[in-house]
Design a protein around this nucleic acid. Sequence first.
DNA 1: CCATAATCGGAGGATATTCCTCCGTTTGAT
DNA 2: ATCAAACGGAGGAATATCCTCCGATTATGG
Lengths: 194, 194
Amino acid sequence: MRADAQKNRQRLIDVAVELVLEVGGEPARDAIAQRAGVGIGTLYRHFPDQQSLLHAATRHVLEKSISAGEVLIGTVPDGADALRQYMHLALDNGIGAVNILHPLLEKPDWPDLRVRAARLMKSLVGRAVRGGALRDDLSERDIVFGLTRFARPLAVGLPPDEERSLAHRHLDFYLDGLRAQSPGPQKPLLPDSR
Amino acid sequence: MRADAQKNRQRLIDVAVELVLEVGGEPARDAIAQRAGVGIGTLYRHFPDQQSLLHAATRHVLEKSISAGEVLIGTVPDGADALRQYMHLALDNGIGAVNILHPLLEKPDWPDLRVRAARLMKSLVGRAVRGGALRDDLSERDIVFGLTRFARPLAVGLPPDEERSLAHRHLDFYLDGLRAQSPGPQKPLLPDSR
DNA sequence: CCATAATCGGAGGATATTCCTCCGTTTGAT
DNA sequence: ATCAAACGGAGGAATATCCTCCGATTATGG
């Protein structure tokens, strides 16, 4: 594959992730090509149909996040710390795009990644809980859910980098709230409020 | 105004909020009318252009949330508790729709609501912080930002009510993390990770 | 430096989506 | 019972998105 073709292909994937996060759904193909600075024809040559681009984008983000997480497992001894670092990394890697894209994919089945992701999450959460640094009623699904709350820019009318740093700051607040010794709500909520 | 007209008008507003939250942006007019169970003509009679409907929907949610909050101020003596109850209420009132719609409105200016909202937030946050139940580096903007993280259904592939109860549960976790005595991150984050 | 196969760009017609007017029919209020 | 008010939705206009096609451009091996 020619060098420029390779570069364009990757650029298209990166832009796709970017736009998915901005739009909160499938971005228009024309918009992707334009932002990537390539002709629309180039996009269609690399990704003949929408699915193939979305698949590639999802895989790319997943692969990056999982790999980074696996490094953390072997690098950061403290369980709670490893989990926190992972969540911040995933956030910066655009993990929110995966949440948006997954339901839109026709057959999103990557046995290899699924196994690695499951193993990774189990290990991260398990170590953090066993270390007593996380409440013990948390499942992997809880962590994934929590991550999705911060992993995606929402319309708040802030400049992107300001919003990004706020997200990291509040993700830390949230993680504090997941700690085992956390006091929990002071009073039960009003029963009729939910 | 005829009774049926009144009812249809309100129903359109409610459906608009619903769809805004589901779609994460401006829903199609046809879709609103269809879900509301009225003809497309009825929608256009009540709201001749898109803006007027979005304005009405935004105002409606804001008004409901602010009023509920003002009641809490006079009802719930404990500051942290009032704040928490307010956030849960706002969530159920569809406050997320306001975040999505606000940047799309042409001149979203309601001096009355702005004043009331500012006063309300200042009071809720102030009382909670002064009571020592919230870290003191939190501004009203922080609270609003935090609320937006939970106030909107994201694509996670869960049934709506399950997602809703998860959101409430994790909002409580998050609020625990905002408490003054919260231990904070155990170790600083990797400097190069952000 | 040349030859050439690979790659690129984007005009523009085909499709799909969304908009919104118009008018015959139905309904609520007196 | 009357009728002004409100309703429904067909369907043409306007817009957005898709995606093919081919002449121009560029990377690469010799």
